[in-house]
Write a protein that binds this DNA or RNA. Structure first.
Lengths: 206, 206
DNA sequence: GGGCAAATGTATACAGTGTCAACTTTGCTA
DNA sequence: TAGCAAAGTTGACACTGTATACATTTGCCC
């Protein structure tokens, strides 16, 4: 836990991180629509123009937050991959749960990552890379499942995209209010189990 | 095609629709982040406060646009349902294509509909209803497929949510730049075919 | 038709925003 | 220790959403 406000001194000490932490608080409270750089600066105990010493503009600060989000997702996949090496279904399920948990606990961060706001004009390289790494780490899980003879022989990339689309879709529907948000970890688990079962089995009769 | 600017008279004639049309143009050009009510008013040839006679605030105008979007999706489902009454897979595919086409052709409208910006604080009833109707019309397709003995015996709602999640997920990934946008109708069709095949078959080996 | 209220559009004002340029303070290094 | 780059401040600008008071037009009732 960083001390956001570190006054008494002219120089803050670690303003970039303090700004990110303050931004996270404000995003959670107000949502992205009312997010203002000036208020971030105020919360960090610093003048309204100080952030420009560390971030090119408002979007650059938001981008830094999104990148952290992608790194988190990548880590989630890797951890579940290593934890259940002989159970691809479990790997997939846990990765999906991590995904959904992020969206439910930090909806504004998820919104930032996935809405396209940040990629509208130009896609920054670091952001792109962070995203790709997260997707790749999901690909490993699918590939592993194929090698263990559990998953279909279709191309890995094809399976990955579909699986990702599925969990991403649910996540976005939660975010957009198209699906009622689970009120407990248990409810979330039930929802995730339903989705993953249908995803594994397919819509067609077997 | 409505005549957006209808000057020469003090009263505009059909300002609400003119504002919506102007808003669509500006959204397409600038994206939602730089969307300003004042510019909408200017494009409609009207003073910057005039929109407040017809919309409670900026969000209400955006909401009207989102509602139109949901109605469009509902229509897409219904049309494809009626066009291929004996081919649920085709119904599903065409509905999905319509969905993806909307997202690709009017990304900002899709963003408005699905980002959660509009539902963040309070969900307006008309918006909620428009969304529900669209989802229900997809449910009919699945239900029809079950009755024809093609789709799995799992609960309709469960299948619907998963199918919707899948196409919605792809749509949002396109929107967010996580998947490269198809450059032609043909490429889009190929992508959609891949997804739907995997979705129908499931990840598991058969 | 004349008059009047409601609907619609305008003008003005205010607080808050992102961003820039010119300034000041600080800490490091030659 | 002198001086210079980094980090923070102040003030300004154009622009935003929105509220209020005012003006014009329209439709309706007598």
């Amino acid at each position: 836990m960083i001390n956001i406000k570190a006054k008494e001194r002219y120089h803050h000490g670690d303003l970039p991180n303090a700004l990110i932490d303050a931004a996270l608080l404000i995003l959670a409270r107000d949502g992205i629509e009312d997010f203002s750089l000036r208020e971030v600066a105020k919360m960090a105990g610093v003048s309204h123009a100080a952030p420009y010493r560390h971030f090119k503009d408002k979007m650059a600060l938001l981008e830094a937050i999104a990148i952290r989000g992608y790194s988190h997702l990548e880590a989630v996949c890797k951890i579940s991959y290593e934890r259940y090496p002989h159970d691809p279904n479990r790997q997939l399920f846990e990765a999906g749960m991590g995904y959904l948990t992020l969206v439910l606990e930090k909806p504004e961060v998820a919104h930032l990552m996935f809405s396209g706001i940040l990629t509208k004009n130009h896609v920054s390289l670091p952001l792109k890379q962070a995203g790709s790494k997260a997707v790749k780490s999901l690909g490993w899980i699918i590939e592993n499942g194929k090698q263990q003879g559990i998953y279909s022989d279709q191309k890995t990339e094809k399976l990955t995209v579909t699986a990702l689309a599925c969990v991403h879709g649910i996540a976005m529907m939660l975010l957009g209010g198209l699906v009622k948000k689970p009120e407990s970890k248990q409810q979330l688990k039930t929802l995730a189990k339903q989705i993953s079962e249908t995803m594994l089995q397919g819509l067609l009769k077997r």
